[in-house]
Design a protein around this nucleic acid. Structure first.
Lengths: 211, 211
DNA sequence: CCAGGCGTTGACTGACCAGTCAATCCGCTC
DNA sequence: GAGCGGATTGACTGGTCAGTCAACGCCTGG
């Protein structure tokens, strides 16, 4: 009664999006057919085209929703008055927890958009770079206040930081790395420690930039 | 005369491979047609299938040739009696110089294989992970000798190191980062410094693992 | 009870393209 | 100069799928 057979308004739209996540995660964007999405959503083929202009628009929608969340989260984290390490930890947390909360969706976003440099990343380059830029600004401020050294450019640092996170997520997605709540928590700390503290034992003087 | 109209043996095979690099780099593996490769190589469509079983085998060939080179290079670098930083710098150098020497080929390998987690990376996961493993072993040895701290697992360190390199290459490939000989040299040093020394100014004690 | 219209359906079309194959070419050997 | 066999050609086939569209269902408002 509450949920009539005829679902109200955008209800089926959401069902299609949810189905798309499952299908894209399982078979990949290019390998799956639009009919797979419709089947998974228990919806007629044509309805997908009622709500979305194309198969691509479905993926675009999934990506943009999620990525805008990320951008806002980073901005909010940056606005807080906390040490730089805590900021980076919070960003890593947000992304790792996004994965924990909905692994399929994050898999789709990373595998099909973020890492798919020749197809979708092209379209969304602007959005993706916004994230880099926000992180770079955080690094930059840390350099100004003296917490971070200046030898490494903020852009470069952002690349390394985000790259490390993405690489770890990729490791989980493809089962190179063990998954689990403990692993997720550890990873957050390890990413931040690697990027901030480096791998070297605290012994060599800062000037030991050999090679 | 030396080069007769009828090229000898595997000559055309190489022409096809070279053409594939150009075409894959320009339009992407999925977006291009086999006929594009044949056209670019000035060769009949069918000849591609004389030398390769499928379009995929062309890409596989490109990838494996190059990746095996990389694996061997890493092994050789590891065998040398030099400080850990120099080893990592040499690895970064090899990869960056590979890009400098043949940007299109590296673009194809990274964009179409290494980062294409859902299609080709699947097939070549083993090969790709060999690289991680080799790097992790180097890190592991550095931990044993006390140069690297033990808090960060070798697997994780390898992920971060390789991830940083790949991210920087991606930055060049898609024009987020300026290219040029100076930039290439700088990048090698910055990658190593970021991973080994971290971003933080040398002031906080090693125990400052906040958050 | 009827009309209008959004939501929904799924068969169909048009285009695309990987891979096949029968025919031709050409260098070589005997 | 006959004939073998690998190299080369490109028209063709078979299958796939994204996207279209005409029709139908069901709610709503009059």
């Amino acid at each position: 009664m509450a949920t009539s057979a005829r679902a109200s308004g955008g209800d089926k739209r959401q069902m299609i999006l949810d189905a798309a996540v499952v299908v894209f995660a399982q078979r990949g964007f290019h390998a799956c057919r639009v009919s797979d999405i419709a089947d998974e959503a228990n919806v007629a083929y044509g309805l997908v085209y009622h709500y979305f202009r194309s198969k691509e628009e479905v993926l675009d929608t999934l990506f943009l929703d999620r990525w805008n969340n990320l951008l806002e989260a980073i901005s909010q984290i940056d606005a807080q008055q906390i040490p730089i390490r805590q900021k980076l930890h919070a960003i890593a947390s947000f992304i790792v927890d996004s994965y924990r909360h909905d692994p399929d969706l994050m898999k789709v976003i990373i595998v099909e958009v973020t890492r798919a440099a020749n197809s979708f990343a092209r379209t969304h380059l602007g959005k993706i770079r916004e994230a880099y830029t926000l992180i770079a600004e955080i690094v930059s401020k840390a350099q100004v206040e003296g917490t971070f050294k200046r030898e490494i450019t903020p852009d470069f640092a952002a690349l390394a930081f985000y790259g490390a996170i993405e690489q770890v997520l990729t490791g989980w997605i493809f089962d190179w790395l063990p998954r689990g709540d403990a692993e997720y928590e550890d990873a957050k700390g390890l990413i931040v420690e690697t990027i901030c503290g480096g791998l070297e034992a605290a012994a060599a003087p800062a000037s030991a930039r050999a090679v």
